[in-house]
């Protein structure tokens, strides 16, 4: 079975490293690269055509919810999961789901939780 491409969007190098490792070691997914903010995510979604995007909310420049709003209009196929320290803020969680996010993963996250949610998509 072909591995699903996952684009990582986070301004933090260390979070990108953690997620890239989880993705590459999973056997089911392959990294489609790392964007550092929402604007880069929109560009890389066009150039890399990932099946899944794991995206932070709180980033400099274009934030994750703004990018999600744009992506949900531009690309109906891509599945976006928000990976954020703000996951526990009810309003942010709800806004992300209403804008089309498939799920929200709170930081700090466990490898098993990330893979379970990505495999359920």
């Amino acid at each position: 079975m072909e591995k699903k491409k996952v684009l990582i969007v986070d301004d933090s190098l260390s979070v990108a490293r953690q997620l890239e490792r989880i993705i590459s070691e999973s056997g089911d997914f392959v990294s489609a690269g790392h964007a550092k903010n929402g604007a880069e995510a929109i560009k890389m979604n066009h150039s890399e055509d990932p099946e899944i995007i794991c995206m932070d909310m709180n980033m400099p420049g274009m934030d994750g919810l703004t990018a999600l709003r744009t992506l949900s209009v531009m690309d109906k196929e891509v599945k976006v999961v928000m990976v954020t320290s703000l996951g526990g803020v009810g309003d942010k969680f709800t806004e992300a789901l209403k804008l089309g996010a498939k799920n929200v993963i709170s930081k700090p996250f466990e490898t098993d939780d990330v893979l379970r949610i990505l495999r359920e998509l």
Binding site: S85, G87, G88, V89, G90, F93, T94, L97, K102, N103, V104, S106, K107, P108, F109, E110, D113, I117, E120
Partner: peptide, 18 residues
Amino acid sequence: MAVKFFGQFLVEKNIVTR
């Protein structure tokens, strides 16, 4: 492992759907 609200907990545990 993080601070959550009840609805989020239920979705994460697959108890209710999104």
